[in-house]
Simulated assay, not measured.
Amino acid sequence: MSLENLESKQITTITGDVHCRHCKKVYQVSYHVRERFFEVENVFVTPKKGLRERAHPVWTNPKPVRCELCGRDKAAKPVIADRKSQINWLFLLLGKTLGYCTLEHLRNFCKHSKSPRTGAKDRVLYFTYMGLCKILEPNRELFNRDSSCL
């Protein structure tokens, strides 16, 4: 579903669950879709050739965020569903936390989005980010895989 489709249905925020490793509580976090998408998009705006089909370091090592309940820094991580079909991909994309997914999760997404799914985790993670961005902005040339960046 593209950004335009989401906005036409008045979906402007995406909510997902986050788990604190200290207080052990799960709570919800919401992201404004358009704002957070542009933050992700800005990583691709920098010379795509420099990424060489590898995930940006910010994506490969996402930092846990501050827990809104107990206030501890670097404590909360997104909850990733056990069943692959129930993973909240858009929430993970907007939170720039796809790096918490296992290689198996990422390969499964790439399989269903017809993206390359072989190679190291940073490569598969790159194609997951690229595939999700292409779903949100299908006509944007920036998210097309081209031979000039290989």
Rank of each mutant, 00 (worst) to 15 (best):
L93H: 03
L103V: 02
P64M: 12
M130F: 13
D146K: 14
R52Y: 09
N61G: 12
K9F: 14
L69Y: 06
R66F: 11
L51D: 02
I11V: 05
K48S: 08
G95N: 00
T128K: 04
L6N: 01
R83G: 13
T60H: 05
P116D: 05
V33M: 02
E41Q: 15
V43Q: 13
Q86K: 15
L6V: 03
V43F: 07
I11C: 05
R107V: 04
I14G: 02
G99A: 07
E68F: 02
C110Q: 07
K9Q: 11
T13E: 14
V18I: 15
R34M: 12
E41M: 11
P62W: 08
R66G: 07
R36C: 10
G71Y: 12
C70M: 00
I80K: 09
M130V: 07
T15P: 03
V79Y: 11
A76D: 01
E7P: 08
R72P: 05
P138H: 05
R36V: 10
L142S: 10
Q28R: 14
G99F: 13
S148W: 15
L90C: 03
F109M: 04
T128F: 00
A75P: 10
Y27F: 09
V33Q: 00
S115M: 15
K74L: 08
T60R: 12
K121Y: 07
Q28Y: 10
Y100P: 05
T102V: 04
M1Y: 05
T15Y: 11
C67E: 09
R34H: 12
T97Q: 13
R123Q: 15
L142H: 09
K96Y: 06
D73R: 12
G119K: 10
R54E: 04
P138V: 01
R107G: 04
I14Y: 06
W59E: 08
I14M: 05
L51P: 00
R66S: 09
A75E: 04
G119N: 06
G16I: 03
E141P: 12
N144G: 10
E4M: 14
F127L: 05
R123E: 13
C23Q: 04
L51V: 08
C133E: 07
L142E: 13
P47R: 11
L92N: 00
L92M: 04
R66H: 09
T13M: 15
Q10I: 15
Y31V: 01
R21E: 14
M130S: 11
D122F: 03
S147T: 14
P78W: 03
L92Y: 00
T15C: 08
G71V: 07
S147Q: 08
S147W: 06
R117Q: 12
S115I: 14
G95E: 00
I14Q: 05
I11G: 10
F37L: 11
N139T: 11
L136V: 01
W89P: 00
S113A: 13
W89S: 03
I87R: 03
M130H: 14
